[in-house]
Simulated assay, not measured.
Amino acid sequence: MSTHHTARPHPPGPLDRWYEQAGVRTGVRRMFHEETERGRVFFPAGLVPYAGHEAVRRLPPERVRELTVRHLYQFLLSTTHLETRVVNTAAEAVANARTGLDLPPALRPDAFKVYCDEGYHALYSLDLADQIAAATGIAIPDEDYGGFVDRLRTSARRALPDAPALAALLQAVVFETLITAVLNEVPGDPSVVGVVRDLLRDHARDEGRHHRFFSALFRELWTHLSAADRVKAAKALPELIRTALTWDLAPVRTSLRLAGLDADTARRVADDCCAAGPDLRRLNDTARSTLRLCAAVGVFDLPGMREHFAAHGLGDGDADPAATEPVEQETQ
């Protein structure tokens, strides 16, 4: 006699309409057409942390333009590493039930959807960088854009030396709740070439759904942690946030040298503008959703934790802790 098991209902999830909405399912290949993009920039100078440095301002305009193109390359190619080596490491562990946690079954297929999305984001980031290099003649520097990931892992090992699996999950949660804010800065800027705006808008749309997935994962993760592990995780979060928002210096120095600065000046500019990470206002603006998520699960209710975050220049989200979800952009 056969036994029939009834599937347990679960509330609607952020990836329930993935087959109809995901970029990898419905998107088009974004193509760069140089003739329609003349007069526009490849990356907003206001988002290039060293663009305003006096040594950079003295460079010829064409060299500054090349700097913005190479900064876009760094943004795109760092993304390929982050998506495949940080986010997908965590997504695979959830998808294959290898976290060691008793997570809701519905998270597993959603994690595989995230895994597919992130591979596609890496592909089209590399594709766009190659297209722009071919069209402009501005070569992609022979750099290891994965150094950023190595720095993230070093930071995680330092913050959670006895819990590498937890560190990997927290890293993915932090990155995926930060990236939507970063991606949303460019699509509305009409001075930026259209293909870059379109690609980052595509990416932000997927990441809005990923944000909700990783927020749910963090809530589940938090409920499974012991009191002692919650304290360890909470103490690790500020460093993970700050590290995720600090540019890798090696590609910056290379780009500055290619623009005509000598090695010592390039090193000084990179150190002056990038080594410390973003200023406190930008740091907290970008991290607001991540901080609200921390508030929502009770991170700041732990003794001394508000002060610990404040020592790293981070507030508590200064808003309703329940307001952790990003606004999903509509197709334009």
Rank of each mutant, 00 (worst) to 15 (best):
R205K: 11
E34Q: 13
S215G: 15
A287Q: 06
T177Q: 14
F213T: 02
E176N: 14
R292K: 14
A139P: 07
A133H: 07
N284M: 04
S289N: 11
T265Y: 01
V299M: 06
F175A: 01
N284R: 10
F300I: 03
L199F: 10
R257T: 12
D264L: 13
R58A: 15
G315W: 04
A275T: 05
R292F: 02
H81I: 01
R209D: 12
L15S: 06
P190C: 06
A172M: 08
L237D: 02
L128H: 06
P60E: 06
V114F: 13
R288I: 05
P44E: 08
T26K: 11
L245T: 05
K235N: 09
P60R: 12
A275E: 09
L237M: 12
S226T: 15
Y120H: 15
A250C: 00
R205E: 06
E328W: 10
G13L: 07
P303Y: 03
A181S: 14
R70Y: 06
A172E: 05
E220D: 10
I241T: 02
T26I: 07
T6I: 11
T3H: 14
W18A: 13
V94N: 02
R17E: 15
P164E: 07
S78R: 12
L101N: 05
T79I: 04
V114H: 08
E54R: 12
W222Q: 08
T6Y: 10
P161C: 02
T80I: 07
G52M: 01
I140M: 09
G147W: 05
A311Y: 01
